[in-house]
Structure formats: structure tokens, C-alpha cells
Amino acid sequence: MSAPPATPKPPAPPALAVGHLDAWYGAAQILRGVTFTVGQGEVVALMGRNGAGKSTTMKAVMGLLPRRRGAVRVYGRAVSGLKPFEIARLGVGYTPEDRRIFSDLTVLENLDAGRQKPRRFADGTPAPTWTREDLFKLFPNLAELRHRLGGRMSGGEQQMLTVARTLMGNPLVLLLDEPSEGVAPVIVEAMADTILELKNRGLSILLSEQNVGFAEIVSDRAYLLEKGQIRWAGTMAELTENADVQRSYLTL
């Protein structure tokens, strides 16, 4: 936890607050009353088995599901009725599980597609902004590939590009859906370093993850989902120590 501010202020709203979120795919209700927060500068892991509702939660926050109900607030501002592009323009960045790189666009064009204006944090300080060159420093692999088509990249390279593309929008809050899924262990390590770097720069991050090994390195707190409901919440340290909880909601 950071040091308390010198002068007392009214408590600032969290970067992301989700309350009683319900969501449906067709007729099937996937989320039931999901409630959680991500504080400013915090990395929070949303964990659970396949089909528990992790990706659905992220999509629902981003406004990508046709049918959802509940409150989603970004720095106190209600966004639940907004369209995805409006939510993105409020500083919410989303990297999907399946990366969704534009395969006919080059790396540079993919990055340009994500470009948005610079932003400030809620307290008025400027938020980190990213240019293409900044991102090439963060992901040196991409620099060599700048004219490569997205479709001609390996899975690991695409995983970097999808994060970089989201950062081009200068987000304040980042939703990372399973960044460690389906990539080689070496890439997973690089991804963990990147997340810690972004946290250092002040971003607030919601991470969906199945791998406790990955989550414990990067996250401060965790929520465990099962069948679309939050079943447990606590710090990452509490989770790693609690074998019972892990067995109930994660182990198979």
C-alpha cells in the first residue's frame, strides 16, 4: 500500500467499480450479481475455471455483450449504458483473450488503429501516454516487425501486439483477458514483466487468469469466480496460503 496523502481528501472513487453485474449469452445467464473493485494503481486478478465467467465479465464491463444489467463505474462515472467505443474513450483498454489482431494490417497500422488522445488521472496528473516508439522500447520484438502483417506473426508476438495496441489508446484502466493463455512459457514471463511495469506507471489493471503461478507474481488482490458468481475475495497472499479455497474454485 502506498503512503497516505499528506492532506486528507474525500476518498477517491476506485478506478473500476462493478456492482451486481448480470449478463446473458442468448437465453443463458452467465453472470449473476458480480461485484468487485479495482483501486487506482492496483492489479487485481479475476480467477476461476474455464467457463466460470471471467471473459464474460470483461466483455460485459467493456459493453461488448448485447444483454447486461448492473452498475459499472470508471472513476465514479457510470458507463453501463454506453457503447464499447464510448467506454474505450473514457480510458478503459481491453485486450481480448484471443488477441484479435487485424491480420491484414501491419504492426504499425494495428497500433494506429488503437490510437487515442492523451489523458489525465482523476487527480489531474497526466497519465502515461504511449507513442509507437515508446511501445517499441517496451516490446523490442515488435520494433523489428513494424512492417510485418499481423496475420504473419507468431502467437507470442501477437500477444505483445495486442497489449501494445491497447496501450496506444493511453488507457487508465486495463482489462487483460488471460494474457498467459496459449503462449509459450518464455512469453508468459515477458508478459509478467510488462504488467509489473505498467503497474509502476500507475495503470489500474484487471487480469483474468487461471494460472495461480502467474497471478501471484503480478497481482495484489484476487476474486474467485464460479458459475458467474464471486465466491471469494482477498489478497493474493491470502489466496496462495489457502489451499482449501484453491481446491474449491481453481483445482480440477
Binding site: N211, V212, R247, Y249, L252
Partner: peptide
Amino acid sequence: GTGRIAERSGS
């Protein structure tokens, strides 16, 4: 990789 991050879905 280095094995720094174990792949596990729970203890």
C-alpha cells in the same frame, strides 16, 4: 522458459 512461473491451476 526459466520455469520461474509454474503452470498450475491451484496448489
